[in-house]
């Protein structure tokens, strides 16, 4: 599974990426690829991913993300503040997995 995390500059979400990777290893998940990118790069890179997670601090851009996601037929979710703040890799990973299962 390929997960894309999006925030303003891709800096703070990269913290969460590391935690999610560790959690993935712990669960023995194969073929897990997670990366953080800046929102401005979303349209360029979205094709490479199965699901997009949006940092809560740029949820004012949710519509923009939703439009691109719909166009590209990808699932997306806004990461809840608590998960984001505590840099909770397990819950963020669950969020991505559920999003892929449930679809758009």
């Amino acid at each position: 599974m390929r997960i894309l995390l999006i925030c303003a500059a891709g800096m703070s979400t990269s913290l969460l990426v590391e935690k999610m990777k560790k959690e993935g290893e712990k669960r023995g998940m194969q073929d897990l690829y997670i990366k953080a990118e800046a929102i401005d790069d979303l349209a360029r890179v979205i094709d490479d991913y199965d699901v997009v997670l949006l940092g809560p601090q740029i949820r004012y851009k949710e519509k923009y993300v939703a439009d691109i996601a719909r166009e590209k037929n990808k699932a997306y979710r806004v990461i809840p503040s608590q998960i984001y703040g505590m840099v909770d890799g397990a819950k963020a990973l669950d969020l991505a997995i559920d999003a892929v299962k449930e679809g758009k």
Partner: peptide, 11 residues
């Protein structure tokens, strides 16, 4: 962000 969302300061 770990402070703003983790403490949290937000809301």
């Amino acid at each position: 962000e770990p402070v703003t969302f983790g403490l949290p300061i937000v809301m």
